[in-house]
Simulated assay, not measured.
Amino acid sequence: MHPILTGIRLITFDLDGTLVDSVPDLAVAVDAALSDLGLAPAGEAKVRDWVGNGSRVLMARALAEAQGQPPTEDALDRGHEAFLGHYGRDPGSRTCLYPGVREALDGLRCAGYPVALVTNKPAAFIAPILAGFGLEGHFALCLGGDSLPQKKPDPAPLLHVAAHFGVAPAGCLMVGDSRHDIAAGRAAGFRTLAVPYGYNHGEPVRDSGPDGVVESLAELV
């Protein structure tokens, strides 16, 4: 096992940008929502830089780009509702697992580690995506961005997971691809591990100061 797992009793993963590349599906839904509002599409490249703070912030960024100014709350409500409808109809057909993810999750399960998922994606979309890859049985607990009042980078979701399993934060590891994951993990007292291939608003995730970085999650096992 990877040395960063020494003394670790619970592992928590981010989803988008860490386990799966979901941007192709997210971009289709964003562009469809913009079209509903009579606005020009954003395209996948821009959406890739906007992901990470939940679906409402994603649409706020898309609307601001399309309109040249921040959206009103009414426009954001309509845009977000349209996005949720489009994404909910097809949240996974273009999404793919990153290399090494299945090997890591299989290996951790065989080693007896409890594994949780904490994402800022709305909770309703978690199960369909995991089921599409046959991974729903790998996670003992899944939290979405709307499961609690707070979301990452607030440490509350991670502290909730630690308390759920009765593991002290010092015995927990947060694995993610962005500064929000690392900030949440650090604030919760978790050890942190980053992958460099995900979504971090165009910034190197190493700049966020994780305790470790792996090129592939397969390195964990």
Rank of each mutant, 00 (worst) to 15 (best):
G88Y: 07
R109A: 15
D36E: 15
K46I: 07
A62E: 01
T119I: 01
P41A: 05
A123R: 14
V118F: 05
L84V: 11
G38Q: 07
P41E: 01
W50G: 06
F125C: 01
P99S: 11
P70G: 11
V115M: 14
G107H: 10
G52C: 10
A124T: 06
A33L: 08
V101S: 11
S35T: 12
G112T: 05
G38W: 04
T95I: 08
L117S: 08
S93Q: 06
V47P: 03
D36C: 05
T119A: 01
F125W: 02
A82M: 04
Q69P: 05
V51M: 03
T119K: 03
K121Y: 00
A45E: 15
R56L: 00
A111E: 09
F83Q: 00
A111Q: 14
G88W: 06
A32Y: 03
P41C: 00
R56K: 14
A75Q: 13
G52K: 11
G52A: 08
R61S: 10
G52Q: 10
G107R: 09
A33E: 07
A116Q: 08
T95G: 12
T119G: 01
V101L: 13
D90S: 12
M59I: 05
S55Y: 01
R56H: 00
L105W: 08
L37M: 15
Q69R: 15
P114C: 10
L76T: 09
P71S: 13
G85Y: 10
T72C: 03
E65Q: 11
L63P: 00
V118S: 04
P71C: 10
A45D: 14
S55T: 13
T119H: 03
G43H: 09
P99N: 11
A82T: 02
D36S: 13
E65T: 13
D90L: 02
G54S: 00
V47R: 03
W50Q: 07
R61I: 08
G54T: 02
R109L: 13
R48E: 08
